[in-house]
């Protein structure tokens, strides 16, 4: 196969996709396996960056943008704040019974992953190439949020309002006013 520009282009596309996949999985492994919590949060941010690239490959640039804005920009920062306000201990090296427990967790999680992957590979999904997407998912998404999913959208805004009010109440409760 000669390297015409078209072939080069498809190779480049596949390489970028694989790098997003690697970022997602490596970041996730880093987030659960590191012993220092700051590094866990950085791994989480890396994983979410990779995930936003995968969303881009799933033809939804809006979700990719929201992923970076909400997860990396808001949730990772919130977790950082939680760490700074509560001063958690870093994970200690497990020994004795802790080691056995950790190995058991790893075994169960590995079995679950293998089982799910076997199921996915043997499920025999009807062979469809990716459907030709409409060019403008932005417009469609906005319309769906306001018409078909309008009620769910409103309920979500109430949930967010209650969550922020509840967070204020819970975090403030128990703090006494100075005499």
């Amino acid at each position: 196969m000669s390297l015409t520009p078209v072939v080069m282009h498809s190779y480049l596309e596949a390489a970028v996709f694989v790098s997003f996949v690697v970022a997602t999985l490596l970041g996730a492994i880093f987030a659960v396996a590191s012993r220092r919590l700051v590094r866990c949060v950085c791994g989480l941010a890396l994983s979410f960056m990779g995930l936003s690239g995968l969303y881009y490959y799933l033809q939804s640039p809006f979700l990719a943008l929201m992923q970076i804005l909400i997860y990396v920009g808001a949730i990772c920062i919130t977790i950082m704040f939680a760490m700074m306000l509560t001063d958690p201990q870093d994970q200690r090296l497990p020994r004795g019974r802790g080691m056995v427990l950790e190995a058991a967790c790893l075994l169960v999680a590995g079995l679950m992953a293998v089982g799910l992957i076997v199921l996915i590979c043997r499920a025999g999904w009807p062979v469809t190439s990716a459907p030709a997407t409409p060019v403008d998912t932005f417009k469609e998404l906005g319309r769906a949020l306001l018409y078909r999913y309008g009620f769910a959208f409103e309920v979500m805004s109430v949930v967010l309002l209650l969550a922020s009010l509840g967070a204020l109440v819970v975090a403030r409760g128990g703090r006494r006013a100075k005499p």
Binding site: V32, A33, L37, C40, P88, Q89, L101, L106, A109
Partner: peptide
């Protein structure tokens, strides 16, 4: 599926609430 399994492992491995929150997000 891999993200779910990794998050599941982290949820039981971490000893602090922050670590469990991170795994839940995964």
């Amino acid at each position: 599926a891999l993200l779910f399994a990794i998050g599941f492992f982290g949820f039981f491995r971490h000893r602090t609430l922050v670590g469990m929150l991170i795994s839940g997000e995964l």
